[in-house]
Write a protein that binds this DNA or RNA. Structure first.
Lengths: 153, 153
DNA sequence: TGCTCGTTCGCACGACTTGCGAACACTCAC
DNA sequence: GTGAGTGTTCGCAAGTCGTGCGAACGAGCA
């Protein structure tokens, strides 16, 4: 995702208006590696701008996604998360605490897949499920705590 | 997923009762490669057994999943899909029509990932997004039809 | 056959997201 | 600076997907 200043230009260039609400969200998202949900962004935004609406957060996130400035990612059945990192990368998900981190994966071109039967893949998405360092360290015993997400494959 | 007969045994062995509703769902799921949603199964089941409840379909699917006879898979933000194939495999998803197929992937062990910083992956999930053969053939021009799912990574 | 306990099923509710429309405010032209 | 016009905000309602609850039911066993 581009900087708040560049996004301001980009919005104006598209005939979109630059409101304080949007500028706030540009700032909150820029460089954000937390993969926040709309609700989480709304909470952070509300602290700075009481009265901002969750509806506006959803709307602005949708605008940014449609401009290619954000990726929408969904892991399991939880709420959609938003990733300002639009470079080619992948994700690790802690099935215990739900934390998400970016990860770069090498060697995807060497994967051998069958059968494809005419299917034309354009995007390869890799998600590593497991335990983050913090959860692995505090794990009581072998999974006595139910995971918040089932591994979905 | 095991055969309807084996599942009948397994349910009884666990003290679970085998009802006509469950037996119907066992049959509809066994060998099913469609990755159906609960709603889709409910529609099919209703044709054979009018009066069956969507609630019962969800309940039985949850029971089967908790017994390890089914995988729950979620692609993007749509409804959960259920996969009676519990072998290690991956999925291809047509972003135009939503079709899902199983795919076997070789070479996963050779992938190089960084940074993991103590994250302990237990499951690697690979989803190929693209166009199924049918959609690729009927594609009008370059994506004039919006995809039903954004590639989620 | 009769009893017991798990199951079914409809309804209501919860989480997440989107549609709608009135009031508002950013931009631009003057 | 001011006013007009159009896009935006925001609250509410509604939609989608899934689950909790409890009364009625029925599978399985003695």
């Amino acid at each position: 995702m581009r900087t708040p200043t560049e996004l301001t230009e980009a919005f104006r260039a598209r005939g979109l208006k630059v409101t304080p609400q949007r500028q706030l969200l540009f700032r909150l998202l820029h460089g954000n590696t937390q993969h926040p949900t709309a609700e989480a962004l709304f909470a952070t935004a509300s602290a700075e701008m009481p009265g901002i609406s969750l509806r506006t957060v959803y709307q602005t996130l949708a605008d940014l996604a449609s401009m290619g400035e954000l990726q929408q990612v969904a892991f399991g059945s939880g709420p959609t998360r938003f990733d300002p990192n639009v470079d080619e990368h992948h994700h690790v998900v802690c099935d215990r605490c739900g934390a998400v981190r970016d990860v770069w994966v090498d060697g995807i071109a060497d994967l051998r897949m069958a059968p494809l039967d005419g299917f034309e893949p354009s995007v390869t998405e890799i998600v590593l499920h497991g335990r983050c360092a913090a959860c692995a360290a505090t794990e009581p015993t072998a999974s006595t705590v139910p995971p918040i997400n089932q591994p979905t494959s």
